[in-house]
Write a protein that binds this DNA or RNA. Structure first.
Lengths: 114, 114
DNA sequence: CCGTATCCTCTCTGATACTG
DNA sequence: CAGTATCAGAGAGGATACGG
């Protein structure tokens, strides 16, 4: 009933799920976006744009939409003129912290074997 | 213009490091390869090829080389004819397990909110 | 057995211009 | 302000054939 692969890592960790997790954060910008939302909890489109030098509007909206579709980010549009839209992490998105810390630890320790 | 990023997630987790960690496992095959090496600890090229349906020799060697360059897997070539080459996780590669489990937990719980 | 070498396609990324 | 539309380049991924 589960996915296609019964691939398993050491203990009981399914490749399909890990791959899904990785996919959510894949690419050049998603992690940067998410990290800003971790720190600020509520950001407007233009604020994200300013906080992330080098990103284009196209890439920003594209990645935000992907994160939204994955249930990581929530889009809050206020019906005013001019438009006012805010983004924040969903509860589910906040749950990513453990995985991010684990990856951080791993990548960090290999450069500081001490 | 990828800054040296002092981007930080909730507590003290650096974007650069997390991104490095993600990059190591990125793509369609690396995770599958690593998971097989987690379970079998020592596999020949041809064994991996057989264990991973659909992968081409090019992709297999390409991903193995990338993982090797990242210090995650080790290539052991026995100087015999015909060639005999084995792959296994490095101690560093084994350290990925925590991150994989964290990602797995996250991806798994969002599909089973119960 | 363990790879290389080509060639081709498709996705990702980005620059630029425009709009409700 | 918060997006869309278009076009183009680079690279990841893959099919197939060949080589030590």
């Amino acid at each position: 009933m589960m996915g296609t692969a019964e691939e398993v890592c050491a203990s009981s960790c399914t490749v399909d799920y890990v791959q899904a997790g990785l996919r959510v954060l894949e690419g050049r910008w998603k992690l940067v976006i998410v990290s800003h939302l971790f720190r600020n909890s509520l950001l407007r489109f233009s604020e994200l744009e300013r906080l992330i030098p080098g990103i284009t509007q196209k890439m920003l909206i594209q990645q935000l939409r992907a994160l939204e579709a994955d249930g990581v980010v929530e889009r809050i549009a206020h019906p005013v003129v001019p438009p006012h839209v805010e983004y924040r992490l969903t509860p589910d998105g906040l749950g990513l912290e453990g995985a991010l810390i684990a990856l951080d630890d791993w990548a960090r320790t290999r450069h500081q074997p001490a």
